[in-house]
Simulated scan of single mutants.
Amino acid sequence: MKSKYLIIGSGQLGQELINLLNNDVEYTYHTMDPFNRGAYLDITNFDLLEDHIIKTMPEVIINTAALTDVDKCETDRNMALKINGEAVKHIIRAARVLGSYVIQISTDYVFDGEKGLYKEDDLVNPINYYGLTKLIGESYALSYDDSLVIRTSGIFRHKGFIPFVFSRLMNEKEINAYKGYYSPISAKKLSEAIFKLVEKRKTGIINVAGERISRYDLAIEIAKHLNKRPIIKEVDNVSNWIAKRPYDSSLDISKAKAILDFDFYSLKENLKYVVIK
């Protein structure tokens, strides 16, 4: 069956893309099928992955699947490499056969966090295995001319630091905020940006993320948004973390701002799309 879009993965971003594209999309899932109409696919079974793409015959492939648990990537390196790196090679192999346009979702964690506000052409230097495997995935994607790597930061919908802060504030509980900066964006606004970039058929690398902010300041802003009096502590590390985290992995989004004609980046706009479960 021929489809315009194939979304690989049905996590937070995948769900928003499926909602946005509605009937013009087919999608795969691994752990859960949020809309009960997807195709189960283990993307580490590379033969089945290529076979599914070729049978679906999509014009556009958007790969949102990833092992994003940073500590799990550190402890299960083989699985992290398969999902975040090697699977992209096989997506690209199938895309070449079909002539499909590919969007690969990547991360701010390809940078070491020493300076922040990273541009697309800044030197990459991941400090954890998650960042390294996502960088390998980028390399495979960029080996194909008709591909776009979108680097983003702190995606949230019903999971992530921002929904966590909402929940803690509403339950009047203390919040520990890791010291450092990033550029969080809602899955909703990121999906809208992706759709517009597909229409423009952009290739190469582009940063699509929110405004640079520290997690501490972010928690304060959310408290104001909810009219709550927070108890927030800024911490240098979290005791059960295994992998290193970059101190300032924020992204320079000036290139995306010049291309996209809507507000995908402001904190005020993005906070509208938190889903509390």
Rank of each mutant, 00 (worst) to 15 (best):
S10K: 00
Q12F: 00
L13R: 03
G14P: 08
N23E: 14
D24H: 06
Y27A: 06
Y29V: 04
T31D: 06
T44W: 09
F46G: 10
L49N: 10
M57F: 04
I61W: 00
N63L: 06
N63D: 12
L67G: 01
D69E: 11
D69V: 00
V70L: 13
D71N: 13
R77K: 15
R77T: 02
E86V: 15
H90G: 08
I91P: 06
A94T: 04
A94Y: 06
I103G: 08
I105T: 05
Y109W: 11
V110I: 15
D121T: 15
D121V: 12
D122T: 11
Y129V: 01
Y129D: 02
K134H: 03
E138T: 05
S139Q: 14
I150T: 09
F156K: 05
R157D: 06
G160E: 06
F164A: 05
L169F: 06
L169Y: 13
N171P: 01
E174S: 14
I175E: 02
A177V: 04
Y178K: 15
K179D: 13
Y181T: 09
L190N: 05
E192K: 09
E199G: 05
K200R: 13
T203I: 03
N207V: 09
N207S: 03
I213G: 03
I213C: 07
I220Y: 03
I231T: 12
W241Y: 11
I242W: 02
L251T: 04
I253Q: 02
S254H: 07
I259D: 02
L260W: 01
F262G: 06
F264G: 03
F264Y: 10
F264D: 04
S266L: 05
S266T: 15
S266W: 01
K272C: 09
